[in-house]
């Protein structure tokens, strides 16, 4: 008689812990073939609120952590992903209906993406900052700094590669974030959260919420302690418009959905620089 396997309970990832939704709600996740795959936590407004609190409290430490350390931690995410290939591939296969070979390629791309971004941690000031040749006896320089707490609505279809592609650049630059994952394909996100949790990433730097975009995202968009919002995963034009308008409440930096974005293509600096501020410092030169 075959052994009865032990199945995973898929929960949220907030402040380094894996709580159920405070609402007690869950929803059925179906695999690509329409069969029951798991119950996922259905995050609520209050879960979003708690995630923002976690992200805010993590921000100071993470944004001021030295860039070498940030780079190493993000690189370690890639290492842990590599060590959990089997489950990540299985999750992607189940959720996206891919063959094992294609799911492996997706995972390869996701891991490589993390590695690519990890290396940027200590290079952003060199590439995005500059000394400014001002008139007069002043030393003037500009450096990039993270914007703060960023809400990210992850794309619906690409459950792992897109999730990684939208989250990691935000984090490697020193921001913390609250990510609303793919609603219909949330399982790779939670497995990925287990990678994050074991990679020395400080608690609260990344928080993952599974659930309904239309339910949670408006609370994040209008949250005054969120500094930016990435609407990459919001395909519905009306929802995108209302989220962007709501984000104006505190002048959140925003990024819109781009229908033409190809997740397989190696990215450029765009996602890294989106949620960065430029700080300009000017000081007299004298004796």
């Amino acid at each position: 008689m075959s052994r009865i396997d032990v199945r995973k309970t898929y929960k949220l990832y907030i402040n380094g812990a894996f709580p159920r939704s405070e609402s007690g709600r869950s929803y059925e996740v179906l695999d690509a073939g329409g069969r029951f795959a798991a119950n996922a936590a259905l995050a609520s407004r209050k879960d979003a609120r708690d995630a923002v609190v976690a992200a805010r409290s993590a921000f100071k430490g993470w944004s001021h952590a030295n860039a070498y350390l940030r780079g190493q931690i993000v690189y370690r995410i890639a290492e842990v992903m590599e060590s959990r290939r089997a489950q990540l591939v299985a999750d992607v296969m189940a959720c996206e209906g891919l063959t094992e070979a294609r799911a492996k390629r997706v995972l390869d791309a996701a891991i490589d993406r993390v590695v690519w971004y990890a290396g940027w941690a200590d290079k952003l000031p060199a590439v995005l900052g500059n000394a400014n040749a001002v008139s007069g006896p002043f030393f003037n320089f500009s450096v990039p700094e993270p914007s703060g707490v960023i809400a990210i609505v992850a794309p619906e279809a690409s459950s792992l590669l897109a999730l990684v592609s939208v989250t990691i650049p935000v984090v490697v630059a020193g921001n913390t974030c609250v990510v609303v994952t793919s609603r219909t394909r949330p399982l790779p996100a939670i497995t990925w959260a287990e990678c994050l949790a074991t990679s020395d990433l400080p608690n609260g730097v990344v928080n993952l919420l599974t659930g309904d975009h239309a339910e949670i995202a408006p609370w994040l968009a209008s949250h005054k302690d969120v500094d930016g919002i990435d609407l990459s995963g919001v395909e519905d034009a009306a929802l995108a418009r209302s989220l962007e308008a709501a984000a104006a409440v505190n002048l959140k930096r925003f990024a819109r959905h781009d229908a033409e974005e190809d997740w397989a293509v190696r990215p450029n600096l765009r996602r890294l620089s989106r949620f960065l501020e430029t700080k300009t410092i000017l000081q007299p030169i004298g004796v």
Partner: peptide
């Protein structure tokens, strides 16, 4: 803050 002036202001 986006601009930080040290020992000067409004430059």
């Amino acid at each position: 803050a986006g601009i930080v002036w040290a020992n000067t202001y409004n430059k």
